[in-house]
Design a protein around this nucleic acid. Structure first.
Length: 416
RNA sequence: GUGAGCGUAGUUCAGUUGGUUAGAACAUCAGAUUGUGGCUCUGAGGGUCGGGGGUUCGAAUCCCCUCGCUCACCCCA
């Protein structure tokens, strides 16, 4: 095999494409239902956007980015996540001047240089939503509802919603001190990774999968108990509203998220039908991000959700995707003149939005019939020498085998 | 970056303690009296057994290297 696709990428072949089309259509329909508008940003950005926006201490920026110098010497990075680019576009295009509130969604590829495994690719497709300009608790709630609706429409019902709040930046800072104080006595027992994090990003020790780490952090002070009263009551209001709307969730003190821009509410959608990579979506508030990127202080909240993972869960649940459309009528032409006539008729039918197909391999009558049958065409239109003489072809209905003589320019009238 | 498992036709897989031209099913294509599909029957094409090196009279099978895939760690969607 001479050429192979790069590691962690995939070809989506025709036999699978209808699943993608349906999932994408669902995302767009539900987004419209919630009055979200699509935004498209470039596939690559200047590297600095992610260094500043996502945080240089995060793993995504620290070790997972596709970064390279372009021919002019600028450092370019393939977009590893959706929020920072959208916020950059929001600021750069002065979108706040048009209207105070924006509800945006995207559906596009993300790139991360990681070792592939189940549910993880180097290029993967993500849909996400962002609400910019409001700090209302209803924005948090609405995003969760949006994601949930998309999942539900793809037959995904058995997922958990995990919630937490990591408060404002100063609250988080002081909590981290509290956490460090607590961990200090056990620091030697922590995993190597967590030891490093003790200095750089102690919060992340909470979401370590290492059993020893987890045991130690089980008894750690909870961030929810260390929030200011405003942040705490805001979180309670989000939770109460979700309860009122009948949404099931669980509060998880370990849910701290790996991107630096998050504040207050964080949430994740977890499916038990996946392997180790079990998050089908996640997000949270990022009230400081826009200011960090040079805009006016503006609140925001958003989430991202992996299309491959969504499709995996949908398939595992046996969701029945709609069948791809088949040509309605197959033209069997038995000689050159017949072929010309067939193409005239097909041109007319296609103008009328009727899908049709004919043989392009010069195969026998029988083989063409088989092909029509395999394509599940409802009709076959046969043109041979006799038909050309009569100026009428044979329209065969495949379901019952009946045939009728039909003029070449009147076929559409007979297709019901 | 670390670890484990796995690479045989398009696909799913057989392949006996190393032994002759590497098999099956499905799929593909072509026929089964001349211009008619599904079912059935017959036949055909398709593999440098991931690649390279080694051991051996002889390697798909044993050893080494390499590439790839898969899963897990890490991290995240």
């Amino acid at each position: 095999m001479k050429f192979q696709k790069p590691k962690g990428t995939k070809d989506i072949l025709p036999k699978d494409i209808n699943k993608w089309h349906f999932a994408e259509k669902t995302v767009r329909e539900v987004s419209a239902l919630f009055n979200f508008s699509e935004i498209r940003t470039p596939t690559f950005e200047y590297t600095d956007l992610f260094n500043r926006g996502v945080g240089s201490e995060t793993d995504i920026v620290g070790k997972e980015m596709y970064t390279f110098p372009d021919k002019g010497g600028d450092s370019i990075t393939l977009r590893p996540e959706g929020t920072a680019p959208v916020m950059r576009a929001y600021v750069e295009n002065s979108m706040s001047a048009e209207q105070p509130l924006h509800k945006l969604y995207y559906l596009t590829s993300m790139f991360r240089y990681e070792r592939p495994q189940s549910g993880r690719y180097r290029e993967h497709s993500q849909f996400g939503g962002e609400i910019i300009g409001s700090d209302s608790i209803y924005t948090d709630v609405e995003l969760i509802m949006l994601a949930k609706e998309v999942y539900n429409r793809l037959g995904i019902l058995n997922f958990k919603i995990k919630l937490n709040s990591i408060g404002k930046s100063d609250e988080r800072k002081s909590y981290i001190e509290t956490l460090r104080e607590f961990l200090k006595s056990n620091i030697n027992e922590l995993s190597e990774e967590s030891k490093k994090r003790f200095e750089t990003n102690a919060l992340r020790i909470l979401d370590s999968k290492n059993p020893v780490d987890r045991k130690i952090t089980e008894e750690a002070p909870k961030i929810l108990d260390h929030l200011g009263s405003e942040s705490r009551s805001r979180f309670d209001m989000v939770v109460n509203e979700l309860t009122r709307l009948g949404i099931n969730y669980e509060i998880d003190f370990r849910l701290v998220r790996g991107l630096d821009y998050y504040t207050d509410t964080t949430f994740e959608f977890i499916s038990e039908d996946l392997g180790a990579q079990d998050a089908i979506g996640g997000g949270g508030r990022y009230d400081g991000l826009i200011e960090l990127l040079g805009g006016k202080p503006t609140p925001g909240v958003g989430f991202g959700s992996g299309m491959e993972r969504i499709l995996m869960v949908a398939e595992k649940n046996g969701f029945e995707f709609p069948e791809p459309s088949k040509p309605k009528i197959y033209f069997i032409a038995l000689n050159e003149d017949a072929k010309k006539t067939a193409f005239e008729s097909m041109t007319e039918l296609r103008k009328k939005n009727i899908s049709c197909e004919t043989d392009l391999l010069g195969r026998s009558f029988k083989a063409q019939m088989r092909e029509a049958n395999k394509l599940e065409c409802l009709f076959v239109f046969i043109i041979g020498e006799e038909e050309l003489k009569k100026n009428k072809g044979l329209l065969k209905t495949m379901s019952d085998g009946s045939q009728a003589e039909v003029e070449f320019n009147k076929i559409a009238d007979y297709l019901k």
